[in-house]
């Protein structure tokens, strides 16, 4: 018999309870059990970063965690990054303004990663930002729009 567990976790401020096979990754659980498909699976071996979510505020690979390990924790996905009133966060705004995405597949990982990184490193410069997203592969943009967006968002966040 498949090994399953009941899992309760908070996603984007909302509590969810569901049964999952213990071998299910957190990423697959978010996407297919809860139906939040904004998190993307690009490699399922920890390198591309598309699946990055915030676990208790820290950026982690959701393909390298079992859903059962998130039991009792708080998860934030791309769907939960906007401000409480539904307006875009400064980082989302900046991605839009600076053409920080093309196909949008890497975008959830870029946004979650940079949200955590800029919170911890509000003064980050270009080199630091590039290192911070070295664990997030983008095949489309050449990274420049993303880096520009992050630099701009950092500025906005500091002014705001």
């Amino acid at each position: 018999m498949a090994d399953t567990r009941d899992i309760t976790l908070t996603v984007n401020g909302e509590s969810h309870t569901a049964t999952a096979e213990t071998r299910t990754s957190l990423g697959d659980f978010l996407r297919h059990t809860i139906g939040l498909t904004g998190t993307h699976m690009g490699c399922e071996h920890g390198v591309c970063g598309a699946c990055t979510v915030l676990l208790d505020g820290e950026a982690v690979r959701s393909c390298l965690m079992l859903a059962v390990q998130a039991n009792g924790h708080e998860v934030t996905t791309i769907e939960g990054l906007a401000n409480a009133d539904g307006t875009l966060s400064p980082l989302q705004e900046a991605f839009w303004e600076h053409h920080g995405l093309q196909c949008g597949f890497c975008t959830p990982g870029m946004l979650t990663s940079l949200t955590a990184f800029l919170r911890d490193h509000p003064d980050a410069d270009e080199k630091e930002i590039r290192e911070a997203i070295s664990g997030n592969i983008c095949r489309c943009t050449g990274y420049q729009g993303i880096v520009n967006a992050a630099l701009d968002a950092a500025k906005t966040m500091q002014e705001g």
Partner: peptide, 9 residues
């Protein structure tokens, strides 16, 4: 060692 996201775990 890897990236900040992998070091978080």
């Amino acid at each position: 060692v890897g990236h900040f996201q992998t070091r978080n775990r």
